[in-house]
Each structure stands twice: as C-alpha cells, then as structure tokens.
Design a protein around this nucleic acid. Sequence first.
DNA 1: ATTTTTTTGTCATTCGGTTGACATTTAGTG
DNA 2: CACTAAATGTCAACCGAATGACAAAAAAAT
Lengths: 325, 325
Amino acid sequence: MEKVRLEDVAEHAGVSPTTVSRVLNNRGAISDKTRKKVNDAIEELGYFPNEIARSLYGNKTNIIGVLFPNVSNPFYGEMVTELETILSEKGYKVLICNTNNNPEKEAKYLKMLLSNQVDGVIVGSRNLPSDIYQKAHLPIVAIDRVLSEKVPIIRSDNYQGACMATEYLIDKKCKKIALFTGSPEEEIMRGDQRIKGYIDTLEKQDYDPLILQVSFDEDEAFQRKRVAEYLDAYPDIDGAFATGDTLAGILNTVASSRGNQIKIVGYDGTDTFLKFCGNISTIRQPIKEMAQVAIDVMSGIFAGDYHHQDNQEFILPVTLIESIY
Amino acid sequence: MEKVRLEDVAEHAGVSPTTVSRVLNNRGAISDKTRKKVNDAIEELGYFPNEIARSLYGNKTNIIGVLFPNVSNPFYGEMVTELETILSEKGYKVLICNTNNNPEKEAKYLKMLLSNQVDGVIVGSRNLPSDIYQKAHLPIVAIDRVLSEKVPIIRSDNYQGACMATEYLIDKKCKKIALFTGSPEEEIMRGDQRIKGYIDTLEKQDYDPLILQVSFDEDEAFQRKRVAEYLDAYPDIDGAFATGDTLAGILNTVASSRGNQIKIVGYDGTDTFLKFCGNISTIRQPIKEMAQVAIDVMSGIFAGDYHHQDNQEFILPVTLIESIY
DNA sequence: ATTTTTTTGTCATTCGGTTGACATTTAGTG
DNA sequence: CACTAAATGTCAACCGAATGACAAAAAAAT
C-alpha cells in the first residue's frame, strides 16, 4: 500500500493534477461535476494532502511550539490542554516540550522548534538568557515568565492573589500566619509577587511574616519531613499560605496527620486540585482565560497589529476558592 | 532579517552547497579545515536546517502523534510527560492531541496526524471504530485501550490491582467494602477488569459487592452530592475502592467532612495524587515503565522486527501505595 | 455558426534540502 | 615529478504540493 499522492488522485479521477489542487484549495473556476469526480477519487483512495509539502511551499507550518516545565504538573497540564484546544480549533497543531526547567533542555527544544519552522512559541518555562529568545526572531508569548523586554507576558495577578489569601486567613482569625514556598532563596530576594503580597498584607495589620522554604527539588518524603520540622519549630502556626497547591496538599497531609489545626490557602486552583483536595482553600488562576489571551496576543503578532511596546503585560484577576467544608 | 538557508551558509563559508550538506550529514570525505569553515559559518549566521524540507525528502518526520483524552488529567499528563521525555531523547518530536474522548475530535486528530506524516501514533483515547485505525496503516500502539486486534496494547494489571486494593481493605478489617466508579453502565457490564477484580476478591471471601456509580460527565459539585447520597444510603460503608484517584479524592473530601470513617484505596497513583493526597492509599500504575514499553514496542514496529500477532498485550504490574499516616 | 465565457490542461518554477554521478582540483606519497 | 587518493565542485533529479502564465477544449450565449 503505497502512499497516495495528489497525482494519483488526478489520475484516478481522470483530471490533471492542477485541477485537483484547484479543488483542494478552492481556486479558479471548477464545475460541480469535476469537483465531485475529484472528491470521490479522494474519498476512494483515502487521500489526504501532505502537510509537509504544503508547509514547505507555503513557508508556514501551522504548528505552535509549547514550552513548559512539565505537563505532569496540573497547572501546566491544564494550561497546555486549554492552549491546545483553542489552537486546534484555529487550525494549529501543537508541538509539546517538557523542559523540566533545565536550561540546556530548553535551549535544545527552542532550536528544535525553530528547525521545525513553528509559526510561534508559547513559553511557560524560564532560565534561558533573554537574548536567545530575542535572536529567535519569532512570535513568542510568555506565560508568567519574563523572557525579555520584547516578549509580552500573560500572567495572573500574583500580588493580589497573595493579598487575598493572606486577608482571608486574617479574617478567619488566624493568629500566626506562615508562608510556605518552594521558590529558591534568590527568587524570594528578587521580590516574588506572591511573597510580597503576603508580607505587605501582614505588615499592614501588624502581623509578623514567617517565610518557610520547602525546596521543590527534593522528593516528596523529604518535603514532608521538612514541613513537619517547621510545624515542630513553630507550633503556634494556625494559618498558612502556600504559594503552590502542591505544597498546600503536602502541608495539609502532614498537619492533619499530626492533628495540627491549620487553615491553609493554596495557589493555582487547578481542577485537579479542587477535585483531589476539596477541603483546602486556594487562589484560582484563570487558566482558560490566560490561554485565550496568550493566543489572542499571538494572533495579534501574526496579524502584525501588535506594536512592539516593551515590557507588555496582560494581568488577569484571580479568585479565592473557599473550601466547601 | 531573512531566513538563512543552506545556500547562504555555503556562500558565507565560500564552499558549495553540497559541501555544506556533506558536513551536516557526515557524508563523504571532508577535511577538518572545511568542516570548521562550514561550522563557523553556521554559527555566525545562526543557521539551522529546515526540518520540513528534510522531512519531505526523507519521507520521515520524526514526529510521533500522541492522542489522549486530556493532558490535564494527571494520569495522562504524567504519561505524556514520560513519553515525550523518552521520545525527545531518541530525536523524536511530539504532536499532542486532547480528544476529550470525543469520537469526532479523535477522527479529526487522527486525520491531522496522518496529513502531517507522523511516523507513529500512541493512543490512550478510545471510541473510534477500529477499522479507522486499521486503515491508517501506520505504526500504532495503544495504552490501556483496545483499538483493534492489530494494535498492540500496553496496560497495567488492572485486575490484579483491583484484587490488591480489595484485599487490602479486607485486611484492614473493613466490613462493608463498596466500589466507586466513574465508568458508564455499559463498561461495567462489559466486564471492566478493575470491577471484576473487586467482585471476585469479595466473593471469594463471602463479602457482598456494592457498586456505586458517579458519572465522570457531571461537574464536581454534582459528584460530591452523589457521593454524599451514597454515604447516606449506605451508612455502614467502612471501606471503599475507587477505580480512579479523582473519585478517591472526592470521596475522601466528602467522607471526612461528614466524619465518616472510611478506608479508601484509589487507583492510578500519579505523583500529583501522592502529593496532593498523601493520606489516601492507592494502586500505582507504573506510568514511566508503560511509556518505555510503548516506545520500545513502537521502535520494534519501526525496525520491522515486530511480527503482527493479533491481540498483543503488554501487561505491567501495579503496586499498592499505602498512605503514610 | 460564431463569439464569449467558463473549465480544464500543460508546463515550469518554487519551497529547502538530499543524494548520486561525475568532473575537477588539491594534497599526499614514492 | 608523476601518480594516486582525498577533497570539493557541478549538476540534475527528487520529495509533494502550490501557483502563475498560457493554451486548449468545452459549454454557454448571441
């Protein structure tokens, strides 16, 4: 069973290749009769145009590269799902890349995407020196990441979300509100917005901030141990804002197993988290909306009606999801 | 900034296009001096070969299509991550498709993948009449799905897993062990292996099975309500096997909020679930290993050393992960 | 029947790179 | 210096389709 080509269709339909092409692309004048002949032949032979050849000629692949740390993380998984769903409806295909936040991998992937002539890239990963992205000279949008001044960013309102979470804990009469984060020291120093929102809100009300770090790089057992140590060291903690739902989940497991009564607010609010942990409150990022905006912005770049202002940001509002029980 | 082509590299390096091609593909005899000249030119111009053109000529795209219901589901998300990681190391790229178990979407995606000349397809979705996959005439492997007799299946030992889960609950002295499933009626009838394992194990020990259905298609609030109704209707339930972790999570939330003491065992054991819900036991499918086998099988098909036996199955063992606390 | 239109065919070129055949130049050896 | 071997260059065909120009045939209009 050989591959069916346009030429085969032409022969089978008793017309010229050009005519088949005209039917396929709705070009020129074609009688209903021939159109039917051609379509029948396509049907009978099970022909479908070779997109590779089309891409080559047209200098457009309709492929979008999607560069994220890890689709197995529900936040990225849901983001990629939303992106893919919207893009697919627009006739785009999605090449997926899991960088694991590894700079070499990221560079390799970016090069791969360029070699494959993708029409654009959506990046939710980080770590590459910004000039690499600038040199790429390709429509790029970033999700919650600063890539370079030239790359527009779509993100949710991290600062506002952190404030909401912290205020919520204060409202709930928590006396000692800790922050649990997986971010590395340098990021905390650099002024992560979620941490900033937490600190600002607390200080405004004369609470003392307490920042506890639980490295993402360690395995789960170690993270549990670390959390337990913190709870031992600060037994008066009765409220906690975790800057990610994963950490909120771990914290919840550890605290409840020890009988600690701690009100927890997580961050992300993925469907997965809501299903798995319905009893933990969280700040929900509007993933679907972010995906939509990312694609709108990229479409704008395609259309050329995007004026390269530097440091463009699209910030979407977050919502507090209170645990039901 | 125009696109850099092989020809431009040749000109810049002062050699012929053929020589550049020879360097790129390690073909023929080339002196170290020219090789360096060419590589320098490549570097200076920031050239990378157009994979589209290569694919066209070579009749091979090195793209694998990956067809799953939904990457936002942690099981599929982790599966896709593992697949992508392994494939990427082998020089393959991954086109991702979220079918949502929608037959039309699935058909559309399959056609798209064929148009894009993918070298193979890995399917974790279902629902298409098997002849469509047979007609596709392309290397295909399925994950936990029967596509047709011709398509090899990689899955974990669902029956054994269900037995382990049920036995565990019996060991833990549960008296009334219910099964919660999201599978539709017809699938239950058809003899889902997880359900069968549950029933067989119970009956062997003279327990009465109790199968409770919570539709996947409903939203979360509705699922909670449904679960609560079940717990009202059967207040003596003290053990539960949920055929998916999502359901286990919901069940856990509802039960603990009502003060019901129920031992729960879920199914899948994704990293996400283990992190979010460390206090629920589950049956872990060896996702990484399944991904590896799927790719090995596909490589076998590529290499032609795969003899088309019908109904080939690769069944991997599962493990029980007991909640830590 | 003749003139217009409308359809369809022919042909060459393009997209960017690969490859094989063959010619030619350069380098290495005795 | 002659002779062989290694290194490059030239050229054309190819992968599968798209497209523009032009010619030819068929259908519709006068």
